Computed example of a mutant assay.
Amino acid sequence: MPQKTPSGDRPEAGALLTDPHVTGDQDGPIVIANEFADVVVSRVRTRNGMRLDIWSPRRGTRVQLDAVELDCLSYQEPETFTAMLERTPGG
């Protein structure tokens, strides 16, 4: 089954969107954007528990991360992210 995406091609930074697959007590997805990228972040309930859903409207890509994956991000050195940014997406 294809995933539903929040409405709007390029939402404004800080906008609250209606996303039908987001559940729980919350105001809605969060848009984080600057001149280089914009992402829509929301909490989703899956059959394997809660995930953080990160959607890139510009690229049309999405990833869902669980608590262990998010925790792993929290102890990475800044150089890890620098190396990730040097790679070509999808390459």
Rank of each mutant, 00 (worst) to 15 (best):
S56Q: 04
E86G: 14
D27K: 13
A33D: 04
P78L: 09
S42M: 05
G28I: 05
A67K: 12
R47K: 15
F36P: 03
D9L: 11
A67R: 11
F36C: 10
P57I: 04
A15N: 06
Q76N: 12
E69L: 02
G60A: 04
L65K: 01
D27M: 09
D25Q: 10
T5R: 01
E79N: 12
H21G: 07
R47H: 11
Q76G: 08
G91R: 15
P57T: 05
G90F: 02
T46Q: 07
T82M: 12
A33N: 02
V22M: 13
Q76Y: 13
R43G: 12
D71F: 14
M50E: 15
P6S: 04
S56I: 02
D25V: 12
V41M: 14
G24P: 09
T46K: 09
R51N: 03
N34Q: 04
L16D: 10
V22H: 06
E77F: 06
I32M: 04
L70F: 06
D9S: 09
G14T: 10
T80I: 09
G90D: 06
R62S: 00
A13Q: 12
V68K: 10
M84K: 04
V44L: 02
V41A: 13
R51Q: 11
Y75T: 14
V39N: 08
I32K: 08
M1D: 08
D27W: 13
F36S: 13
V40H: 05
E77H: 15
S42I: 01
L65T: 02
P89H: 05
P6V: 03
R10I: 09
L65Q: 02
V63K: 02
V31G: 10
R43D: 09
V31P: 08
V40K: 01
